[in-house]
Nucleic acid binder design. Structure first.
Lengths: 229, 229
DNA sequence: CGAGATAATAGAACGCTGTTCGATTTAGCG
DNA sequence: CGCTAAATCGAACAGCGTTCTATTATCTCG
């Protein structure tokens, strides 16, 4: 018998694919805080130097990980029914949003270095193709697509940002934390903060994903309006 | 004579105000990459331990620095003419956007820990007060304000993100970098990337700030439409 | 005024990080 | 078989946020 599998295990045999997908797995399981070269290497059963043979940078690795994940988003938006361009654009935006909420690290690296992120470009184009179907000038089309992208990334990044220390430590629950924030708003002077008091009840019972969709609809309504004029 | 000023200079005398405003100065001059406790301490003529007496965290320091900067934004949006609520809301949004573009680090810390950021709350309320003047339900009002905030922060963060390594090193200019990106888009297959080719010329000559305003107008148009219905 | 308490300051030390480097092992091929 | 190039490895380095303890200034009050 060959003793390769037996005596081996000393040396790992890697590949770009293995490095990137294991990086995604580590990010998913442990978060970006715990995403270190040492942790990734030990997960691969390899040395840290080996990872650097495939990737020259932590940023480059994250760029590649981001694009790797976008394959799923791309697949999920493959078939659009095409009845209404705006509806199709919404579908792309919502799918991307959901992906980022699930993986907060995506927001910071999406379309950062397009050279290493072909899927990001493809997704951007797929969204743009829907807006192209509207009756807009190239300039207006470009602005609209950029606006949608910015809104999705920005809102998702906001919502998926790390919860406060107390919640992370498990000292208080996320729901408790929201209640505390509401109480804090309520304690403010109504004359100085009229808006906060006006929307207090909405804030208390709000759901991030629903709120995102509401905002997206406002933006899309503005785009539709411009296209109709 | 007292030799206090002469023999002193060994011990620094700090204050919360001094620490925070020197932190902002360091961030402005050197960027967040170079923003370290050691750099800040030496700039203050103090030890790193002294900074920790005022602040328990780097995050807390950045929260405070962010809020400190927002004073200027607050002052700049003090007097709104009030003719049109949407116009006033736009003014607040644009002012905030410009502030973030000038200081990229703001985006990540804006409204992160409201307990330490009273000015962020004030600004959020000031924007909300304008939208309150429209004929919307509390829920719609809250969604609209959140959408504007998310769009501003997200777009500004996107635009102010660190330029590629090659540009940072001064190897190529920012203009050259844009040209390269355009050339890269042009080289793509027009059948696979129809949108990118369609907006190529717009991309080549686009200005980030103008594009932001165009996107903001779309969102505001959507809000106005909802308010009119 | 002076001594004890408290508020501030200081910087060495710790553990962790991304990254570099030279040595070492494997695989491919003439 | 031997040689070259591709891969792997982990110790070592510089820098980071943070902690800790010793030290000094400032204040309080009999």
């Amino acid at each position: 018998m060959t003793d390769a599998p037996a005596r081996a295990a000393k040396r790992a045999s890697l590949s770009m694919e293995a490095v990137v997908s294991e990086a995604v797995a580590l990010l998913d399981e442990a978060g970006d805080q715990a995403f270190t070269f040492r942790a990734l290497a030990s997960r691969l059963g390899a040395g840290v130097g080996s990872v650097y043979w495939y990737v020259s940078n932590k940023d480059e690795l994250l760029d590649r990980a981001s694009d790797h994940v976008l394959e799923d988003v791309l697949a999920a938006t493959e078939h659009l029914d095409g009845a209404d361009p705006i509806e199709d654009a919404r579908a792309v935006a919502v799918t991307l949003f959901d992906a980022i909420v699930q993986r907060p690290w995506l927001a910071a690296y999406f379309m950062r270095d397009v050279e290493q992120q072909p899927n990001a470009l493809r997704l951007f184009d797929r969204l743009g193709r829907q807006i192209m179907r509207l009756d807009l000038t190239p300039r207006e089309t470009f602005d609209a697509v950029s606006a949608i992208t910015g809104f999705v990334i920005g809102t998702a990044a906001d919502l998926s940002q790390q919860p406060p220390q107390a919640v992370r430590d498990g000292k208080i629950s996320a729901a408790q934390q929201l209640d505390d924030a509401v109480a804090q708003w309520r304690a403010l002077d109504p004359d100085e903060f009229p808006f906060l008091h006006h929307v207090l009840d909405e804030f208390a019972g709000h759901d991030d994903a629903t709120q995102f969709r509401a905002g997206l609809d406002l933006l899309l309504a503005g785009i539709r309006l411009k296209a109709g004029a």
